[in-house]
Write a protein that binds this DNA or RNA. Structure first.
Lengths: 218, 218
DNA sequence: AATAGATTGTTAAAATATTGACAAAGTAAG
DNA sequence: CTTACTTTGTCAATATTTTAACAATCTATT
């Protein structure tokens, strides 16, 4: 494996594809497949084998000429690249339907997210038990964050509460925010925000359906 | 894959940004703002004004020199481009936490999605009322689709059921599928699938947190 | 151990996407 | 009406991303 000298420059386009690699490799691991070539995997994923090999080359050499890739090795490599082994301590704020969906989400723990506590401001659900977690009051959030050294906050509140919760999370020492509220959040430079806008997928579907008959192949 | 809308070929990169334009313009409409310049809007969105103007130019001319854009006009133009006015008839299959979150999702109806029915195979919840909808048995799905001329199906089932439900939807005449199950779905050429992989955002967050200082992101 | 076939990692050419610059065309105000 | 601003839509220069091609090198088979 070549030694990395100086900073490695990874194109954004490659980074955006990493979660997809993770997903497809996980399926192959689950199937117990031992070997896969860039051609096979890329066809499964709907990309070119050239792109797959080029993407991987930014992080090292994971295959063998004439053979391909060992599935579990490649999977573990992708996990490491993504930082999945890290086990970030996490809280979720906003126990509505979306929050509940995430609390019960299998992939949550599978991806190495270590959910420690869940919070809401609705007295009607504070104290309720969901999947082994007890809903706590947002009043307790700030001290809890520091006591437990929480690193990631998931925001599943309505848009109106999002910035206020984000401020609380940051004040408590959180450095990563996964925001589902349809609301732009302002944060200091050293805090990373990942926005997930569920509605965007629907709009893409609309657009493709509307223009379906005029779809042009490259 | 670029999409041809009329005589103009629209780059994929532009299409992917359309939902974002929709989101930000909606906020401005809600705020009652009358006028916005490409510089103002682009700063809000974190893109360049040049890109904003270039993007819009693929669909027509929506602004006025020396003035900018009328917010409601631009918003309506984006809605039309996206096909939001179409009011597609829709069913949702899989009334778990994610399904419930979507059924209650404001943006669902706001984006012109006309939800007609919700389905599940769990006898314990069939007949239950959620936000004015009664949960129906999956047994009834196939005939219901044809009777109501449903066009879009939303899949929020576990991965194991996704392909079976997709087959049912397609057999019933659905031409668009919004799939939340972490499962690749095979469909005929004339059916459009939009996958929303909620877990991907988490992985991106992990990656950015892990490499925040060690990798230079291009 | 030699040969045929497969597949990687890498290079550079081709295709796409983003950006800066600016003429044209408007606004605003005296 | 004129002048000083503002801002669009577009063009072309840059920058980034994707792809095709291929030498190197491994596997599999005889």
């Amino acid at each position: 494996m070549p030694i990395r000298t100086g900073p490695v420059v990874v194109p954004t386009a490659v980074i955006k594809r990493l979660p997809m690699y993770y997903r497809y490799l996980q399926v192959l691991v689950d199937q117990g497949l031992e070997r896969v070539s860039s051609r096979e995997l890329s066809q499964l994923m709907g990309i070119t084998s050239s792109q797959l090999r080029q993407d991987l080359s930014y992080f090292g050499e994971f295959g063998q000429q004439g053979y391909g890739y060992k599935v579990t090795e490649l999977y573990q490599a992708i996990c490491e690249i993504l930082g999945i082994e890290k086990q970030y301590k996490t809280v979720l704020v906003g126990v509505g339907n979306l929050g509940r969906a995430l609390i019960n989400y299998q992939g949550f723990s599978r991806r190495g997210l270590n959910l420690k506590g869940i919070f809401d401001n609705n007295p009607a659900i504070i104290g309720e038990n969901i999947n082994d977690f007890t809903v706590r009051s947002v009043e307790e959030l700030r001290p809890y964050l520091q006591k437990e050294a929480i690193q990631i906050g998931v925001i599943t509140t309505p848009a109106s509460a999002a910035q206020k919760i984000a401020d609380l999370l940051i004040a408590g020492g959180v450095t990563g925010i996964w925001n589902f509220a349809p609301q732009h959040i302002n944060v200091p430079e050293d805090v990373i925000v990942e926005n997930t806008h569920i509605g965007d997928g629907l709009l893409s579907l609309f657009f493709k359906m509307k223009h379906q008959e005029r779809l042009e192949l490259k």
